[in-house]
Design a protein around this nucleic acid. Structure first.
Lengths: 225, 225
DNA sequence: ACCAAGAATGAATAACCATTCATTCTTGGA
DNA sequence: TCCAAGAATGAATGGTTATTCATTCTTGGT
C-alpha cells in the first residue's frame, strides 16, 4: 500500500490526498516556482468550482501545501487572482502576437492559418483555460482591474491583427473591406466559439469550430484561402 | 421634509435611501410581484458588483426591503440566482424566437435584419443585461445547473436560426454553405460582440457592432442583403 | 370596525473564510 | 557537521454571510 502511494506520486495535489499517515516531507522551493505552482492550482480550482467559490483552502490543498502559503507568496487572495489572470492572459495573447509578428518571411496565408490553428488549438481550448478566461470576463464589469490587466494585451493583439488584415487586403486588392471592422469581427467570432466550446461542448466540436472560423476568413479573403 | 419624502416615493430602492427617520411604511404585495422585484434587484447587484460578491443584504437593500424577504420568496440564495438567470435567458431567447417564427409573411431579408437589430438592440445590449449574462457564463463551467437552464432555450433558438438560414439558402440557391455551421458561426459572432461591448466598450460602438454583424450576413447571403 | 391569515421584518445563529503569526522545519554555506 | 536565514505550517482571530424564526404589521373578508 505504501509502495502504491510512492508509485502514484506525481507532483500534484493527489499526493496530498493519498498521503495516509506519513506526516510531511516539507519541501522548500524558490519563490518563483512556488508562485507558479499556486497559480496553476488556482486555475484548476477556478475551472472546477468557479471563481466565486474558490477559497484559499481549496487552492492550497490543490497544491498540496499549507493554508498560509498563498498569503506568504501573494500577500492577499485578491493578488493571487490578479496574477492568475495575468498569467493566462499573457500566455494566450503573447502566443497570438508571436505568430502574427512572424519573423520568418512566411506568406500571409500561412500566417493566417497558423493564427487560427493556435486560437483553436488543444492548448488554448482546454476547459481549464477557457473556464478561467470566462470566469474573469464574468467579473470584469464589476472589477475594472481585471479589464486593465487584459486590455493592454488585448489592444496589442488587435493592432497586430489589423495590420495583418491590412497587408492581406493590400495583397489581394480586396475592395470594400475595412481591416479594423473585419479584425474586430474575427476576434469576436473566436471569442464566441470559445464560449460555445466551454458552455455547450456537445453542440460544437473543435474541428467544427475551426471550419467555421476558416469559412469566415475564406469569405473575406477568397484569393488567399 | 416629510412631504418631500412622500413625494419622492417611487417603488424603488431610492425610497429606502431617502428615508431619514420615518420608520417603515411596510407594503404587502402578491408573491409574483415581490419575486419579480427581487429578481430585478438581483440583476442590478450582479451588474454593479459581480455575481461573486452579490449578497442577500445587497439584493434586499437594493429592493428597499428587509433582509429575510428573499429567503421567504425564494427559499435560498441559490434559488434566487437560478431564477434570475432563468428570467434573463427567457427574455433574450424568447425575443429572438418570436422574431424568427415571424407569423407575418415578411420576406426572409427583413426577418433577418429584424433579428440582428434585436440582438444588438438597446434593450439587449445594456450593461445590466450583458453583465448578468456573462457572469453566469463565467460560472457555467462549474455549475451544470446554469448550463441546463440556458441550454433548452439555446437549442430552440439555434434550431430556429438554422431553419431560417436553410430557407434563405434555398431561396438564393447559395452553394457550398452549411446552414448549421453558418448559424453556429453567426451566433458565436453575436456572443463575441456582446462580450466586446461589455468588456471593451471604448473599442466598439453598438453601431459598429451592427455593421460587423451585417457584414457577416452580407458575405454569406449577398443576394439578400 | 374588527380579526384572522399570512406577508414582512431584522436580531440572532451557525458556518465559513481570509489573514496573521508563533512555531517548526529545511537547507546552503562555513 | 552545524547553524543562521528564511520557507512552510496551521491553529487562532476577526469579520462576513446565508438562513432562521419570533415578532410585528397589513389587509381582505365579515
Amino acid at each position: 500500500m505504501t509502495a502504491m502511494t510512492q508509485k502514484a506520486q506525481h507532483k500534484n495535489a493527489q499526493t496530498a490526498a493519498t498521503q495516509n499517515e506519513t506526516k510531511k516531507p516539507r519541501k522548500i522551493l524558490p519563490r518563483e516556482e512556488r508562485r507558479q505552482q499556486l497559480i496553476e492550482a488556482t486555475i484548476s480550482c477556478i475551472a472546477r468550482d468557479g471563481l466565486g467559490s474558490t477559497t484559499m483552502q481549496m487552492v492550497t490543498k490543490e497544491a498540496g501545501l499549507s493554508l498560509g502559503i498563498a498569503n506568504l507568496h501573494f500577500e492577499t487572495k485578491d493578488n493571487l487572482l490578479k496574477e492568475t489572470l495575468r498569467y493566462v492572459a499573457e500566455e494566450y495573447h503573447s502566443g497570438q502576437i508571436a505568430i502574427m509578428q512572424g519573423q520568418e518571411t512566411e506568406d500571409l496565408t500561412s500566417r493566417l492559418t497558423a493564427l487560427l490553428n493556435f486560437q483553436l488549438s488543444q492548448g488554448v481550448t482546454q476547459r481549464q483555460k477557457m473556464a478561467v478566461w470566462f470566469a474573469y470576463y464574468g467579473e470584469a464589469g464589476a472589477r475594472p482591474v481585471y479589464q486593465k490587466i487584459v486590455s493592454a494585451w488585448d489592444r496589442a493583439a488587435a493592432k497586430q491583427l489589423e495590420t495583418l488584415f491590412e497587408a492581406i487586403i493590400e495583397d489581394g486588392q480586396y475592395r470594400n473591406i475595412d481591416a479594423a471592422d473585419l479584425a474586430m469581427g474575427y476576434s469576436a467570432l473566436i471569442d464566441g466559439l470559445h464560449l460555445a466550446l466551454l458552455v455547450t461542448p456537445r453542440e460544437l466540436t473543435k474541428k467544427q469550430a475551426k471550419a467555421i472560423a476558416k469559412d469566415f476568413l475564406q469569405r473575406a479573403f477568397p484569393k488567399h484561402l
